[in-house]
Structure formats: structure tokens, C-alpha cells
Amino acid sequence: MQSDVYAWFVVAATFVSVSLVVVALGFSLDRRRQISMRLQEDASATGQPLDRAIGSLALNMTERLDAVFAGRGVMSSSSKVRMELVQAGFFSPQAPMIYAAAKIVLPLVAIAFSYLGMKAFSPSGESGAMLAVMASMAFAGYKGPEAFVSRKKDSLAAVYRATFPDFLDLLLVCIDAGLSMNAAVDRVAKEFDASCKPFAINLSLMLSEVRSGRAFPDALENLSVRLGIDEAKSFVTLVKQSLELGSDVSTALRVYSDEMRVKRLLRAELMANALPIKMLLPLGVFIFPALLIVVLTPAMMSLSAIFSSLVRK
């Protein structure tokens, strides 16, 4: 009886997940058809360029989705989830929707696979153990996207922290060459397009905010929030103070870039000094026992042969 209940539960979970996927695909295809029809109507009625029509419709779609999901805290433009996705390097407008769908679908898939695996390897398993395994797998499937985004965010923050001194040096060179701050940032963003694509995207977003009418210090502050590192926050404070006091920005950048290079060198030295401590565990577990075996085995064999000959005499 209990196996039948579990089987019906797995079937229901699979049916719900497949239904959600089908409904999402149908909704996406229907919205695409409506978008193409409205694009044709807007382009023919107003005579505006096609890219402007696409931008306006995409903006309307985003605002409607934000209005729908704002109460649930899933896709609000100022929500913590969206900011964490941006800090993790996921800049797509569909990233919050994919993240929310993953947190819904993955627990169902984990429950289905855990049930099938338990039935395949242990057909007569206890119901309590099966429920515990299914619950733990569902929890892992629910927390899996959060752990992935958090790990991606931390790794990307380390990349930003290592790249930021180079950004300051290139920015200082461009400013000394006579470029304005906006032109210097634009030029530096092109340099990082190949070496660090997420950092270049963040710089491009900051320039887009400035072109749209936002003040440069505010755009810099948004950049520091997207990067999520202390070096960027200190850089924003430095630029704001230089602009407010009317001091030379290049001199302040030169001093700050030197400080950032010193900090990067100190971080490298700290990592190098931590290596002996980190090597203790693999040395004690893997290398030292192997050395003891290699060194002591011949001696033990010789002693065994000597003792055996003495016993025979």
C-alpha cells in the first residue's frame, strides 16, 4: 500500500513538472507571436525604427513581469536575487526567471530520481528511510541553485579583486593622455573585453547609465554594488571626494593604484604563507605513510628473515 502511494506521488510530481515546462513553453511561444505582431503594428503605425520598437516592447514586458512577481519577491528589479545574479555574472533579463524555475523544478526532479533509485537498489526499503532520503534530496535540489550562485559570486569577486588594480592603472594612463573620465572608462572597457568579460560588461553598463542621464558618481556607486568588492567602494568614495573638492583626479588615482598594487602583493604573500599549513594534511595523510612504507618495509623484511632463522636454529 505504501509503495503504491509513493508510486502515485512520483507520477504526480513528474506530471506537475512536465506540465509546468509545457505551460512555460506555450506561454513563451504565445508571447513571441504577440510580440512579433505588435512589432509589425508599431513599425507600420509610427514609422519608428525596428530596434527602437523592440526596445520599447522589451521594456514593457520587463515592467509587466516585474509588476507580476514583485509581490512574490522573485523578479523585482531591485530585489536581492537579481542583484546576486548580476554579481555572479548572470546579466540576462531572463536570469531571475530561470533561477526561480530551477528552484521549483529541481526539487521535483530530485524526488523522482531518489525514489526511482531507492526502488531500484532497495525494493524492500523502509518507508521512513525513503522519506528521509527524498526530503534530503528535495532540500538539496532547492538549495542547489543558491549554492551555485553564491559560489559563482565569490569566484567572480576574486577575479574582480585581482583585475581592479589593472583597471586603475589603465584608467590612469588614459586620463594622463588627455581623455575624460567617461572616454577613459570606455577605452578601458574595450581592453577588458577579452581578458575579463564580466568586468567589461559592468563597465559598459555604467557607461550606459551615464549616457541615459544618470550622474557619473551615482553610476560609479551602482558599479561598486554590482562588483561587490571593497576596492570598488573605496574607488567610488575617492572619485566623489575628488569631484566635490575640485582636486586632481589623476593624482588621487595614482596614489590609489599604488595602494591597490601593494594590497594585491600582500594578498599573494598571504596565500604563499598559508601554503605550508594547507600542505600538512595531504603530507600527513598521503605522503608520510607512503615514505614510511617504502623506508621501513626492507628493514622489516630483513628483521623478519633474521628472526625466522634464529627460531629455526
Rank of each mutant, 00 (worst) to 15 (best):
residue 117 G to P: 01
residue 30 D to L: 10
residue 136 S to G: 14
residue 142 Y to Q: 06
residue 313 K to G: 11
residue 140 A to H: 03
residue 89 G to H: 03
residue 253 L to G: 11
residue 235 F to Q: 02
residue 190 K to E: 15
residue 30 D to Q: 10
residue 27 F to L: 03
residue 4 D to F: 09
residue 47 G to I: 13
residue 192 F to R: 05
residue 168 L to T: 08
residue 200 A to K: 12
residue 308 S to D: 07
residue 300 M to F: 14
residue 163 T to G: 13
residue 63 E to D: 06
residue 286 F to L: 09
residue 31 R to H: 07
residue 20 L to A: 12
residue 187 R to G: 02
residue 112 A to C: 12
residue 126 E to Q: 09
residue 199 F to D: 01
residue 90 F to E: 12
residue 219 A to L: 01
residue 92 S to E: 13
residue 38 R to F: 09
residue 52 R to G: 00
residue 55 G to K: 15
residue 141 G to F: 06
residue 261 R to M: 09
residue 300 M to C: 10
residue 53 A to P: 00
residue 144 G to Q: 07
residue 102 A to M: 15
residue 140 A to D: 04
residue 272 A to T: 13
residue 223 L to V: 02
residue 113 F to S: 15
residue 162 A to K: 13
residue 199 F to V: 08
residue 43 A to H: 12
residue 13 A to P: 01
residue 84 E to M: 12
residue 82 R to K: 15
residue 114 S to W: 00
residue 240 K to A: 02
residue 301 M to D: 08
residue 90 F to N: 07
residue 12 A to W: 08
residue 301 M to Q: 09
residue 199 F to M: 13
residue 34 Q to D: 10
residue 299 A to M: 13
residue 214 R to N: 05
residue 46 T to Q: 11
residue 227 L to D: 01
residue 266 L to E: 14
residue 281 L to R: 02
residue 45 A to W: 08
residue 70 A to S: 10
residue 108 L to N: 03
residue 101 A to P: 00
residue 26 G to W: 06
residue 184 A to Q: 01
residue 99 Y to I: 08
residue 270 L to A: 13
residue 38 R to S: 15
residue 146 E to N: 12
residue 205 L to T: 05
residue 180 S to E: 00
residue 26 G to S: 04
residue 13 A to G: 07
residue 293 I to R: 03
residue 156 L to M: 10
residue 251 T to K: 11
residue 68 V to I: 07
residue 169 D to E: 11
residue 313 K to L: 11
residue 242 S to F: 01
residue 152 K to A: 15
residue 188 V to W: 09
residue 109 V to D: 04
residue 117 G to I: 12
residue 108 L to G: 03
residue 119 K to M: 14
residue 232 A to Y: 02
residue 211 R to G: 06
residue 137 M to T: 09
residue 169 D to I: 11
residue 21 V to T: 04
residue 112 A to R: 03
residue 158 A to N: 07
residue 303 L to D: 08
residue 138 A to F: 01
residue 303 L to P: 00
residue 46 T to I: 07
residue 283 L to F: 15
residue 14 T to A: 13
residue 89 G to V: 06
residue 50 L to A: 09
residue 282 P to I: 10
residue 273 N to L: 15
residue 289 P to N: 08
residue 154 D to P: 01
residue 206 M to Y: 05
residue 71 G to P: 05
residue 134 M to Q: 08
residue 2 Q to Y: 03
residue 76 S to W: 00
residue 149 V to Y: 12
residue 163 T to P: 05
residue 249 V to W: 01
